[in-house]
Design a protein around this nucleic acid. Structure first.
Lengths: 198, 198, 198, 198
DNA sequence: AATGAATGAGCTTTCATTCAT
DNA sequence: GATGAATGAAAGCTCATTCAT
């Protein structure tokens, strides 16, 4: 990418980042079209290629940026070490709602980055993806798992909860306007269900 | 589609069906390219359009065919009414392994059909998709839920299991060769985990 | 072409000739499609190429055959030398109606051959086209032009009549069924109009 | 079509219009290929589809544009009401030579539009074609037919002249370079021939 | 810096032609 | 002899990318 991108007004940077996130998140790397990004944020086609050599470079930048921003928000959420696992899991979701204020499609985009399998970008996103995964695990590992660990397969249970939360988020984006409130209620229900089991 | 397709040798029909399933399952309707199907099964480009008026028609046929075949396999599995829920859930996965013998990408393709959102095919797949969903629910409803129903949120738990199984299947296809054995072991583990909780 | 074509039952030969004439006459060499010929006369695609090496060869054969047949009909009409020009011109049109009994599209096809300009067949049809033109002129030259020749530009007037007759024939084919009767009436009207002028 | 086409330099617009006219006029709607247009005027394939949604849309635009331009030239020719029919007919041909300065294939293209029968464009060109026909008749109706009307079949005679002029024009385009001078001489000869008869 | 016209490789689809049966 | 399944070059069209302004 062209470093001059950072010299643009922050506002414009974010307009472009949001345009790219929205289209990439909704359609995946390959199906995302530059024309749709132009339409989504009103920045001319030429400019995208002025700052980012090609679609690959753009994806690389936006995904990396998005993941970093998410990590930043996570760190700023000041999730306390030793918090009960279920509470912590919920706090992470609250934190996602927080990042949506600046980048409305970021939570969806992150899931799409994780699932992205296009060979053109596979290598490029490997590292940031892994770093993000580690950052999240690090936080998760600080949780108090005492409510879970007496159960021998608790890791599988955690996976199940994660998949369910991902599905709820996808549902949220399918509706015309994402309602943070509703989303969080649903998440809470699922967490409680599991919690009660233990 | 051209009815003459059915006059082809069953072997060739299946070669084409498998080629289409593989590419559609991996890339989704829009990104699937005829050239890749040609490469995948060695049937020339022209022939696809000789039997199927266009890409939409091909998708409509293969998805509908795949779902029907899956329903057939499900019915042939003779899953007994009143079987314990967890056993039944596992039998369905065994049944999927069964259908992979003829159509190796079918289980993956079915998930992709369910997730498909391209407006060009949305209407076409609506009905077969729904019928399949109903057939599956019908079987699921015959299960013995007594091990679950004393738990108030058991529906959420079932969802979680479903998402987890889908994820395991995706993992299976990511490896160079899908190992049915390994897959079934993993599925069993997840089912047991939930089972033990109750 | 493959000489064995002539060993086919005359009936089948004519079925194929008529199929080709119809499609070539209506759409011209380039736009005429083999599939349409198959549909038009129910003879399989492979057979066309069995007897005629390619589309060019087929066109070459059918156009040459059609022109020869037309010349034959003209000679059989026994148009008497010394017939008044206008009567003779009309007799030629009657003769066309005659050839339509075996080859309904032949008169139209002949016009289309004359207008054909596709470089792929230009050279091939040059000679038969010229021969036909000569045969027609030969007959025309035997007419009694005494009603015309006192007029200095009578050649131009003859051209005009020819163009008008061509236009009337095209009109005739545009209607669902070609009505020989109606066509001949119209031709007679135009001939008379010119006749009266002189 | 994309309205931005009009923002292009007039020179380029005309280059594209001429390319399309040439190919459409020579081969008709169906057989005209975009590749040939690319070759004919050096404008890339993508650009045609950037401005015109598809081949149908392009034909619709160019035919409509061509007919309108012809009507404009006709109106600018200031053909006086009451002019003797034969003079007026000749003036129209002079007017065609005028329009060839900007659009060399326009006169040929107009004849081809009138004869065009492809169902894909039939509906689209119906109205402009009719408007053009009306504009031409309007001019023709202002002529002084006194030299003709004492003849009962003068309408047929006019038709004959029209067909002859069309044929002469086709001949003109068949030669490597269209010679306006030669064409007009031929037209004059034919007109005179008819004139002398009356 | 910013635009959007312009390009051409690649995709879907058509069609003359071939070939196994 | 007859069929129609099969092929691949070419046509219409899309889209990432370039470039003149």
């Amino acid at each position: 990418m062209n470093e001059k991108f950072y010299s643009l007004k922050k506002e414009k940077q974010d307009k472009m980042i949001n345009g790219a996130m929205q289209i990439f998140a909704r359609y995946g790397y390959r199906h995302a079209s530059t024309d749709e990004m132009v339409r989504a944020c009103g920045v001319s086609k030429g400019l995208w290629f002025h700052y980012f050599e090609n679609k690959t470079g753009l994806y690389s930048f936006v995904s990396s940026y998005g993941l970093k921003y998410a990590m930043l928000e996570l760190s700023m959420a000041q999730i306390k070490s030793g918090t009960d696992y279920f509470t912590l899991r919920y706090e992470i979701e609250e934190c996602k709602m927080q990042m949506m204020e600046k980048y409305p499609y970021l939570p969806l985009f992150i899931y799409s980055i994780i699932r992205e399998e296009d060979p053109d970008v596979a290598e490029l996103i490997k590292e940031p993806r892994q770093k993000y995964a580690e950052a999240v695990s690090k936080i998760m590992m600080q949780a108090d798992y005492s409510a879970l660990t007496n159960h021998e397969d608790y890791l599988l249970l955690i996976d199940m909860l994660d998949y369910s939360i991902e599905a709820l988020m996808n549902d949220g984006y399918r509706s015309p306007v994402f309602s943070a409130e509703r989303y969080l209620t649903e998440v809470k229900k699922h967490i409680s269900a599991l919690q009660k089991l233990l």
